[in-house]
Amino acid sequence: MILTINGKQVPVEKPVSLDALVAAKGLCPEKIVVEHNLCIIAREDWPKITVKDRDMIEIISFVGGG
């Protein structure tokens, strides 16, 4: 299946939960915010969400800005 993660098409072998996806990407959960199909998902709810084909995931973090 194909996910759109941060605007890029990413092939994923099988359905995974959001927390597994974040872990697979080597991201630190405390530093990021995850949006799933335009819904912000609280960190504690990541295990409850299983991503499906064509889902849109945004993974956001704070950076420098004025």
């Binding site: 990407k25 630190c28 530093k31 915010v33 993974i59 956001i60 704070f62 420098g64 800005g65 004025g66």
Partner: peptide, 18 residues
């Protein structure tokens, strides 16, 4: 102090500004 939000760049490990 102001900060911005951006998509995480998966290709590089970056420091956490916070």
């Amino acid at each position: 102090v102001t900060v911005a939000l951006r998509r995480v760049d998966m290709s590089t490990q970056t420091d956490n500004i916070l």
